[in-house]
Each structure stands twice: as C-alpha cells, then as structure tokens.
C-alpha cells in the first residue's frame, strides 16, 4: 500500500477504518531515530493505511491521532460524534 501524501486524508481514512471494525484494527507506530523517520500504520489486515514523515512538526499530529485512537479503544462504544479532526 502506498503512503498517504497528506496528513488530513490519512487521519480521516484511519479513523474511518477504525470505526468500521474496532476489534480488527491495529495501529502501529514505528520510530527510527538513526534515520530520523516516523511511520504510522493503521490496518485491519485487509486495508492498510500508512503515513510516513521525517518532519518534527508532524510528531505532534501523529501523537495526537495515536492518543485519540487509544481513547476510542478504551471508550465503551465507539461513537462517530467525537471523531471530528481539527
């Protein structure tokens, strides 16, 4: 699967994929310090979404989405109301 070019598209697609079947989806964050890159992957083993960056300003966004998905996972029901991205 190709990498997403824009963060907005990726974030939207990732959340949508998560909400289709929360039990199946895993979110993988890979950080390589020596090469200075960071990759976020969201997959349900059928669809795979990836976003890769080497920009420090993206850390915040990635970490934010990461945290948002974590909160969704622990919340009892996944409601799409809280899914607005800024």
């Amino acid at each position: 699967m190709p990498y997403y070019q824009t963060w907005e598209e990726f974030a939207r697609a990732a959340e949508k994929l998560y909400l289709t079947d929360p039990m199946k989806v895993r979110v993988v964050l890979k950080y390589r310090h020596c090469d200075g890159n960071l990759c976020l992957k969201v997959t349900d083993d059928a669809v795979c979404l990836q976003y890769k960056t080497d920009q420090a300003q993206d850390v915040k966004k990635i970490e934010k989405l990461h945290g948002k998905l974590m909160r969704l996972m622990v919340s009892k029901e996944s409601h799409s109301g809280a899914m607005e991205t800024d």
Binding site: P22, M23, V25, V28, L29, Y31, H33, C34, H66
Partner: peptide, 19 residues
Amino acid sequence: LFQKCRTTGSVVITLKKYD
C-alpha cells in the same frame, strides 16, 4: 527501549482494542 534504539534500530508501538 527508546534510549536503546537511539543509535540503531527502530521502536515499534502497536495499539489494539482488547476485550
């Protein structure tokens, strides 16, 4: 883990919903 991987290697963190 992060400190260990500063010179080489990568850190992989996975999140998954767990029932």
